[in-house]
Every structure is written in C-alpha cells, then in structure tokens.
Write a protein that binds this DNA or RNA. Structure first.
Lengths: 205, 205
DNA sequence: GCAATTTTTGACCGTTTGGACAAACGTTAA
DNA sequence: TTAACGTTTGTCCAAACGGTCAAAAATTGC
C-alpha cells in the first residue's frame, strides 16, 4: 500500500560497500550530528574517496536516512519482544536488561537517534506518529492490564515506558557525564551492571 | 586561583546587546546544534547584521561558550537547593518538581545542554569532572545518609540521581517523541503534570 | 580474450560559511 | 564646535562543503 519499494538489485560489491559506508557514517554522524559531519569525513572513515562514496549513495541525506531507518527497527525490537503472556516482572526485567545492553553495546546508534529527536525528528517524525505510537499503544495496554490484575504496581503505563527509555538510554547518550561523575572507581565497565540492578529495583519495587 | 577573570567593563548598550544575542543564540543553537547554526541565523534572530554581532562577540565559539557556561549554573541550582536537614521525601519531591518545571519552562536550555553532552562535552568536560562531580558527591552522600537512616528506600544514590535527571529531562529533550506517542488527547499541556505525578510515585515508592 | 559493464579517480564548480576591515554613523562630554 | 569614543554597515575573502562529470581502471560475463 505504501510503496512497492522496488528493491534495487545490487552487486556484491555494492552491498559490501554500502555496508562499509554505513558503518563509517554511523561513527561520524553519531559523533558530530548531521550538519556537523562532512561527506569527506565519512569517505575517509570508510577508506574511499568522496566521489566514490557518492557513487553508492546519492547524497549525504540519503546516507543518513538509510542509517536512521535501519536503526529504528533495531531500536524497537526489545519492546516488540515484551510478551503479554509472560510474567510481568520477568518481562519488565528482561526489557530493562536488553535496553541497558543496547546502551552498552550500541552507544553510537543511541546517540544518532537522540540527535535526530533533539533536532525535532525532521526525518522520522512520521515513524514516531505511526509505527512507534502503535507499538507503544499496544504495549501500554498490556502493561495496563497487568496493573489492573494487580500483577504490577499501578502507575501510568505510558510514562512508565518513557521512564524506562529515558533511564536506560541515559547511559549511552550522557555517557561522558556519567563517567565524569562516577569517577575512576565506579565509572568503569561495571557501571552498566550497577545501572541495570538499580533500575530493576526502581521499576519493580 | 583559577582566573582573575578581569571583568571587562561594558557599556549599557553592550550589556543589552550581548543579552539580546544570547537569547537569539539560544533559540538557534538549541534547534540546530553548534555546527548546524550559522552566525547569520543568530544575527537575523537578534535583528542585527553579522558584522555587528561580531562586534559584541569575538566569534561563534565564544557565543556558544558564554551560553553554556551561564546555563550550567541554572542547571545545577535545583540540586544545590536539596537540603540535608529537610524531610527526605519532601526534598526529593521538590527536586523532581523543579526539574520537571525546568523541562517545561526552559526546554531550549535543556536541549542545548543535551547536545553538548551528546557530542562528548568538548567545552564543559572540566566542569563535569569538577564542579558537577563535587556537587553530586555531596548530595549523593546526603541521600545515602537518608537511606541508612531508613528514611528513604535503599538504592544506589548516584544512579538514583542519574535516573531523576534522565526522566525529567526526557520531557524536554525528547519532547517531539513524547508528544507523538501520547497523541492529541494526552500530549497537551497536562503532560508535564502527569509526568511529575508519575515520577513522584516512581521515586518515592 | 574481449566487449560490456561496473567501479574508482582527479579535476572542477557553485554556494555557504566564519570572519576581517575600513569607512560611515551616532553619541558624549569638554 | 569638535575631538574622542562607541556602534553599525557594506564589501570582501579564503576555506570548507556538497555535489558533478568525464575519463581511467577494474571487473564480469560470454
């Protein structure tokens, strides 16, 4: 209904190079934002010349759009996995764990996403209103049901989800600040484990 | 010890114009980030020409630096006000309230700050390690003491503070997303009040 | 082995941007 | 009135940037 999205047939090299460029672009974009990044920087990071890169992507905008759309899927996956038939505490705990793991393992993706939202989500607003809202509506209903059944402490399911997002992504997006405040001793690798434990206690009181 | 900071004597016009430029720069920088903003945009927003603006500020960097340093004070004020002698629940509740009010009333400041941290805090890292860390160390000790006395549910005081920061600032920084998900009905002005109530319940369980 | 196709490169272009500068304008106070 | 000082503007520049293009080089399919 939306778009046939006539999948362009790609050669092996095209697939590989687009992948390589995506990786390089993620590195650069997540550090400097869209406007702060240059095609030259990305080309450098990908080990190729600018015109060569532009042979694989029409322009800077298209690189960014491709990245962020791919990202959205990864990003929503953990929430999708939340199972209405499962045990509420187990489900919530797993969700928090997975989100913290994503902050630990994919901080660049998290920052790229944060950057886009901060700027007003110019490129993905339709997805927020559409796909994201639908998913959250669905899961909020699940949580609300759990609360009604007395299997989870009553509160606002939407703000409950927001709070999980905010706290878990904080450890990727505000990493510098977290490490600066925790200092040498507690700012090491263990901080994600500490965070996960704290958040489980907070949300599953 | 640090810098005599020989306060430059300014004329009335200089004070007024620098203020005007600061306001305009906040508007522009918070929307597009540092690299995404141009001096021309800021000059336009301030209703003056580019060379005129550069008569009041040496360069783009200095405008940004001035803004973000001024901002830090405002930002830390609510935490500073947390009183060790007060009632723990009242103090925490007030802190959350104040932070939510800041997200509602000064979203541009919040986004500017978030942007800076996201990029790795290139301009304010020393402040994070210094002033901010000291303040948090102090208040974390206060909270830890409250917990030891059994006047507040036990948890990690540092992550407790992080969680308050993350959740409250979320409503400024991720505003577009929050509104997109909540939709027409719940995404109106009332969302801050809803958030405040939810967060009080979450942190003061 | 060779022609067709895909990939890579260097040179180039128009625009945007941060910033410099000198000249003009306005204000103040002796 | 006038000299000194503060403010504003138009013009200009060099660098950075996004993107094009034609031609060279490499790869692929027969």
């Amino acid at each position: 209904m939306d778009k046939p999205a006539a999948r362009p047939k790609r050669t092996r090299i095209q697939r590989e190079k687009r992948e390589l460029i995506g990786e390089a672009a993620l590195e650069v974009f997540s550090q400097h934002g869209f406007r702060g990044s240059t095609i030259d920087q990305i080309a450098d990071a990908a080990g190729m010349s600018k015109p060569n890169l532009l042979y694989y992507f029409k322009n800077k905008e298209e690189i960014f759009a491709t990245l962020i759309h791919r990202l959205m899927e990864t990003w929503l996956a953990p929430l999708r996995e939340m199972d209405a038939a499962g045990d509420p505490h187990t489900e919530i705990r797993s969700y928090i764990r997975r989100k913290i793991e994503m902050s630990r393992d994919f901080p660049r993706e998290s920052r790229l996403f944060a950057n886009e939202i901060l700027q007003g989500a110019p490129r993905i607003f339709p997805l927020l209103e559409g796909e994201l809202k639908e998913l959250v509506d669905e899961k909020a209903a699940v949580i609300a049901e759990w609360m009604r059944e007395g299997r989870l402490k009553k509160s606002d399911p939407y703000h409950f989800i927001f709070a999980i997002w905010a706290t878990t992504q904080h450890y990727a997006d505000f990493d510098v600040q977290v490490r600066a405040v925790l200092g040498e001793k507690r700012g090491g690798e263990g901080r994600f484990e500490d965070a996960a434990r704290f958040l489980e206690g907070l949300f599953l009181a």
